[in-house]
C-alpha cells in the first residue's frame, strides 16, 4: 500500500468536516466538525513527516493540537455564554450580522 492513501483519507475527512460545518446548525456540532477538519490536517502532516523523513511535520501537528485545544476552550466558552444569553445553541439564531 502506498502511504499516499493517508493523504486521500485526510482529504476525505477534511471535506466531510467542511460539509458538516456548512450543514449543521447546532454550534457544538459545527465546532466538532471544525475539530474533525483540524485532525484531518494533522493526519496529512504526520504522513508528510513520514514522507520527508524528518520530524518537522509532527512538530507542526503538535502545535496544531495546542492551538486547537486553546480554540476549543474559548469556543466552548463562547457557546456557553451564547446559550446563557439566548437559550439556544443554533448558529442561525445569531444572525444579527446584517443590515
Amino acid at each position: 500500500m502506498n502511504p499516499v492513501n493517508y493523504l486521500y483519507l485526510a482529504a476525505l475527512l477534511f471535506t466531510i468536516g467542511a460539509a458538516g460545518v456548512l450543514i449543521r446548525r447546532n454550534a457544538i456540532v459545527v465546532f466538532m466538525c471544525v475539530e474533525l477538519m483540524l485532525n484531518a490536517c494533522n493526519l496529512s502532516l504526520v504522513a508528510f513527516s513520514r514522507m520527508h523523513g524528518n520530524l518537522d511535520g509532527q512538530i507542526i501537528a503538535f502545535f496544531t493540537m495546542v492551538v486547537a485545544a486553546a480554540e476549543v476552550v474559548v469556543g466552548l466558552a463562547i457557546i456557553v455564554s451564547l446559550f446563557r444569553a439566548r437559550h439556544t445553541a443554533s448558529v442561525d439564531d445569531a444572525s444579527l450580522m446584517k443590515l
Binding site: L9, N42, L43, V46, S49, R50, Q58, F62, M65
Partner: peptide
C-alpha cells in the same frame, strides 16, 4: 492509531 502507524508515537 494512524499516527502511531506513521511513526508519530508521541502524537
Amino acid at each position: 492509531v494512524f499516527y502511531l502507524a506513521n511513526g508519530a508515537y508521541f502524537l
